[in-house]
Design a protein around this nucleic acid. Sequence first.
DNA 1: GAGAGATATTAGGTTAGCCTACTAATCACT
DNA 2: AGTGATTAGTAGGCTAACCTAATATCTCTC
Lengths: 257, 257
Amino acid sequence: MYGLKPAPFKTGSKLTRCKEPEMYMPTHRRANGNTESVDNYLKAILYLGGREESRVTIKALAERLSVAPASVTNMLQKLAASPAPLVAYERHHGVVLSQAGKRRALEVVRHHRLIETFLYEVLDYPIEEVHEEAERLEHFISERFEERIAAKLGHPKIDPHGHSIPTIEGEMAARESMLLADVVREGTFVIDSVSDRDAQNLRLIEACGITPGARVRVRKSSARGCDGYSVRVGRSARVFDLSREVARDVRIIRLAK
Amino acid sequence: MYGLKPAPFKTGSKLTRCKEPEMYMPTHRRANGNTESVDNYLKAILYLGGREESRVTIKALAERLSVAPASVTNMLQKLAASPAPLVAYERHHGVVLSQAGKRRALEVVRHHRLIETFLYEVLDYPIEEVHEEAERLEHFISERFEERIAAKLGHPKIDPHGHSIPTIEGEMAARESMLLADVVREGTFVIDSVSDRDAQNLRLIEACGITPGARVRVRKSSARGCDGYSVRVGRSARVFDLSREVARDVRIIRLAK
DNA sequence: GAGAGATATTAGGTTAGCCTACTAATCACT
DNA sequence: AGTGATTAGTAGGCTAACCTAATATCTCTC
């Protein structure tokens, strides 16, 4: 014999016969009953609803998820129609998360950020690569995995980008911060967080030494027509000029001084 | 703002328009182009084909994958019909892996076993839980993840169950071993590997101190009608009696001595 | 070598999730 | 309040993976 593991493992999908009527569960359903896709809708609603958890439009969701508006409508109808709905959806009036939906969304965000932290701290990933990997894995790790990496990391409260990691109970600390791109009056700031949206930008940002917690001196600089932001990190002599585009990926907090 | 990551990430699926004809890629396609399901078929064929890579029947596959035979036929036809087929399939005469198919299957096995090792060594999972977690994650980790955990673990050659981990090049060391359940002549053996098929059994086996590399003295014991195997591990005084069922989950190598 | 029993294939149907094209509702502004 | 632009919803289609039921093929024994 070869030594490959000798048996499959009921992966939670499979037939699941319900009495007579031939029923079976489709393939990509996950432990908690959600699919990857559903999780992504929930995350998107959480994000777009913002801190006030306001109603989210179909259009916004479609854009964020890179999906046709009709697909969004479809999905929301299904989610809202379920016996234990994850969203409250009203025709022509957008959608908000239900309690359950918010719980799940925050759980996925927690997974994502714990994984990012883990990849960065334990597996020495370059910062700009953690997001993509986490984006996939967040849907597939077990509670045990979550618990173990959290323990290994000493139950961190923020991820390597500076974002708050929701607690197991589903609480996420909110912080007041502003975009570097919104600076008008020069001053001294602390880096709050950096965006993981664009790996390219992120590498650049990182290369400047701009990491969460760093102290920076910022001034608007309108060199060469296009305006940017000149940033001096810490006490270093070097000053970096960031484009508006890149400056949008950095969140900062003004030091009262 | 909340601080959730500000943008989605093209996850490799999505529209992918091809000129005029409206084409799009379905959802659960993965980086390398395979789906989880395809990977599982490949793994199953690799396992069932054994060391000689002999033809595998539809029935055997159906059983191993807990799927109807018709579904297997369907899938194999698709896999065989692709431009770069992963299997060679002949109507009514079973299936074998192609070069490419074998490569991929071994890659997935490598992922699986590296993940198991990682969970066991780094995250202190109990041995009987690593399989289930690995079974899910093996499909979703990147090459980088694989490389990083392999490095972290010092490029291990066997996993915690004692199974060989294929190399990146797709080589897997074969070992001569026998089932504990096939012992007739008593003697001294080294534990080769334990099966991860049944978590329950595995916990029991582990509790006896039966782990890969351990030296054991085995004797057939027909106590109380049902026959089993009495095992003394190392120099310990305690002797454990294992049922035939459990003994089938342990592979051993007879010590020449 | 013919028929029975085992095994495999075909045909037709399901759900999830996505798509496009078209229609309906709402909003924003005069 | 009317109207045009924007946004949302409906209808109908597609693929991946499953399913069952019916049918075809193979193999093995007599």
